[in-house]
C-alpha cells in the first residue's frame, strides 16, 4: 500500500460563482489499482459529492475518459504504478467540452457530430435471404475502426478541434470511415458533402494527438487519411 496525493479538478454549478479549482485528497492504494479506484475511494470514503462517469471498469464502455497528468486516458485502465509519479496524480475533465460538474463534461456536441456523419449502413439493395457476403480482407479493412468506444479522448485532444469547434473531429471521422469502407455500404454519395469541406476531413492536419490519446490504440489519423484519399481519387 502507498499513499497517493490526488489533485482533482472540482466544479459545482450549484455553488454560485465558484470556478473550477483543484482539491487535494490523500488516498491509500495498492500500486496495481487504477485511477478509477482512487476516485472511488475518494467518493465512497471521503467526499460523496465528487462526480465522475464510469460503468464497465475495463475499458469497453467509454464512460471514464479524463485528463490524467495532462493526458487523455481511461481512468479504469490507468494503473497507479504506471503514473509518472505513483504517489501523486492530477485528474481533470476532458478539455474543450463544457464542464457540467467536477469531471463530468457535456457530451452533447460530441454526439451531435457523430449523428452528422450518418453513422449507419446505407444500402438500398434489398438484402438476400441469408447474410451479405463479405471477404475476410474486406472485413479486415474496417476491423480497427469498429474498436472505437466513443470515449471522446481523441476529439478533445485535437488542436484543430480546439481551434475550430465546428470541425467534425477524429471520432466522428473514424465512424464515417467505418461505414464508408464497409464493402456492404452504398452511401458514399450521401456522405461526400459532409466530409469534403472545411469542417470535414481537410481540417485534420495530421497532428496525431488523437492517435496518442486513443485508449484502444486505433490509428485514427491513418483512417482519416484513407478517407481523404478516397475523396481525392473519387473512387466510390
Amino acid at each position: 500500500m502507498i499513499k497517493v496525493n490526488v489533485r482533482v479538478s472540482r466544479f459545482n454549478p450549484e455553488e454560485g460563482n465558484v470556478k473550477p479549482h483543484f482539491e487535494e485528497f490523500t488516498v491509500e492504494a495498492d500500486p496495481t489499482e487504477k485511477v478509477l479506484d482512487l476516485l472511488h475511494k475518494i467518493k465512497w470514503e471521503q467526499d460523496g459529492t465528487l462526480a465522475f462517469r464510469r460503468s464497465c471498469a475495463h475499458g469497453i464502455c467509454g464512460s471514464c475518459a479524463m485528463k490524467i497528468d495532462g493526458r487523455n486516458m481511461l481512468a479504469c485502465e490507468s494503473l497507479i504504478s504506471n503514473l509518472k509519479d505513483p504517489t501523486r496524480v492530477t485528474v481533470e475533465p476532458l478539455q474543450s467540452l463544457p464542464v457540467l460538474k467536477d469531471l463530468v463534461v457535456d457530451m452533447d456536441d460530441f454526439f451531435k457530430k457523430y449523428e452528422i456523419v450518418k453513422p449507419y449502413l446505407i444500402n438500398k439493395t434489398p438484402p438476400p435471404t441469408k447474410e451479405r457476403y463479405q471477404s475476410v480482407e474486406d472485413r479486415e479493412l474496417i476491423d480497427e475502426s469498429t474498436k472505437c468506444i466513443q470515449c471522446a479522448a481523441c476529439t478533445t485532444s485535437c488542436p484543430s478541434n480546439w481551434k475550430n469547434p465546428q470541425f467534425l473531429g477524429p471520432a466522428a471521422l473514424l465512424k464515417s470511415y467505418r461505414y464508408c469502407f464497409d464493402s456492404r455500404d452504398e452511401g458514399m454519395d450521401e456522405r461526400i458533402r459532409i466530409l469534403d469541406n472545411g469542417d470535414g476531413v481537410w481540417r485534420c492536419h495530421t497532428i496525431f494527438n488523437c492517435v496518442e490519446a486513443c485508449p484502444k490504440d486505433i490509428n485514427i489519423t491513418w483512417h482519416i487519411s484513407e478517407l481523404k484519399k478516397k475523396l481525392v481519387s473519387r473512387e466510390y
Binding site: 438484402p127 457476403y133 472485413r139 464497409d182
Partner: peptide
C-alpha cells in the same frame, strides 16, 4: 441475418 443486414461487422469464413 437481420443484424448482419443492419451492418454488424461479423468475423467471416474464407467464403465470406
Amino acid at each position: 441475418y437481420e443484424l448482419e443486414h443492419m451492418g454488424v461487422p461479423f468475423s467471416r469464413t474464407p467464403e465470406g
